[in-house]
């Protein structure tokens, strides 16, 4: 049991299912936010873009909660989170998400589908519902970061930068989802190109936040092991290939130079994939620091195996 060097216990409980949940909550919230902003600021010309964004909100978040339910050990008991709303971020988040889904559903049903009802003519009522929905969309997006960040022992997550990173990623993936659907529904090329340009700037900002996040994690003693795991360890392929190359760099150049047609669709697909992998990399990078006592560092060597241990660091059980 020569594992004193293995400082840090990798969390294995939350993996792809939770990553998919965080990702879809981000896409839904981000698309809805972008849709409402397009309606508020863009005017009648941006109607189709706005409708796509608003329409994407509810189904994406609902699909995400399905992933969350699939991860629960006892989904039969899931209704119990409603009884104690004050207890934890999961309970609060459930309420935020459900309120968001209700507003997004009303917004969709009265404006777009199944019947273009009261909100189609009454612009101010639509803007009011949109503004309230946007607040809860923003909370949904931020909450995914706060949910992870509340955990003290996992120092990688326990930082105020995580909600920022997740919100920026949510906005960029939301815009990408709109671009992808917009291709199929025939949004004008100039509008798609403008969306792509806006998204390209969001991607630059996201890369900046990601760099600050990882730098901060590396400079903090408690989370250095996590940062190393993400930068050079077992999670590194996800970070460098999936998140940075596929999710940020390639979409950035495609959006800046292409902006429409096949290039934009490819950029959106790659960007969405990168957003999912970003959530996964952050989850899989989460480690609980080694216990320090009486001058010793105690590694956690007898917990469940890391599903993807780094070479030469397989913890013996």
């Amino acid at each position: 049991m020569e594992s004193a060097k293995l400082d840090g216990q990798v969390q294995v409980e939350w993996r792809w299912l939770i990553a998919a949940y965080l990702f879809l909550a981000g896409v839904g919230g981000g698309a809805y936010l972008a849709g409402v902003i397009a309606d508020l600021a863009g005017g009648p010309g941006w109607m189709l873009v706005s409708k796509i964004g608003v329409f994407l909100g509810m189904p994406c978040v609902l699909l995400g909660t399905m992933f969350l339910l699939a991860d629960l050990g006892q989904p039969i008991n899931a209704w119990r989170v409603w009884i104690k709303p004050k207890t934890s971020w999961i309970a609060r988040g459930t309420i935020i998400i459900v309120i968001f889904m209700i507003f997004a559903a009303i917004h969709t049903a009265w404006w777009i589908w199944p019947f273009p009802g009261p909100l189609a003519d009454n612009e101010s009522a639509r803007h009011i519902i949109g503004a309230i929905g946007a607040v809860f969309a923003f909370l949904t997006v931020v909450y995914t970061g706060l949910l992870l960040g509340y955990n003290q022992p996992i120092a990688l997550w326990n930082t105020a930068l995580l909600p920022v990173l997740f919100s920026v990623s949510a906005v960029s993936t939301g815009i990408m989802a709109i671009m992808l659907i917009g291709q199929g529904l025939g949004v004008e090329e100039t509008k798609l190109a403008l969306l792509a340009n806006i998204d390209a700037f969001v991607l630059v900002f996201e890369l900046f936040v990601l760099i600050v996040f990882l730098y901060n994690a590396y400079r903090t003693v408690e989370s250095r092991f996590s940062a190393k795991r993400i930068l050079t360890g077992a999670v590194a392929p996800y970070l460098w290939l999936c998140v940075i190359l596929c999710g940020l760099v390639i979409p950035f150049f495609l959006e800046l130079w292409g902006g429409h047609g096949f290039a934009a669709a490819l950029a959106a697909l790659l960007g969405l994939f990168g957003g999912l992998c970003l959530r996964y990399a952050i989850l899989a990078g989460g480690t609980i620091g080694a216990i320090k006592a009486a001058g010793f560092e105690f590694a956690r060597i007898d917990r469940p195996k890391d599903p993807m241990p780094a070479m030469g660091k397989v913890p013996p059980i």
Binding site: Q9, Q11, E13, W14, D71, L72, G73, Q74, P75, N77, A78, R80, V81, S88, W89, I90, L148, Y150, N151, Q152, P153, I154, G286, I288, I291, R300, R303
Partner: peptide, 23 residues
Amino acid sequence: KNKCIGCKYCMMACPYGARYSVR
């Protein structure tokens, strides 16, 4: 055990890794 939904949030929050859950 009748109230737990198995969200595993507590397993993340415990500084001592004392909690376990089996499917």
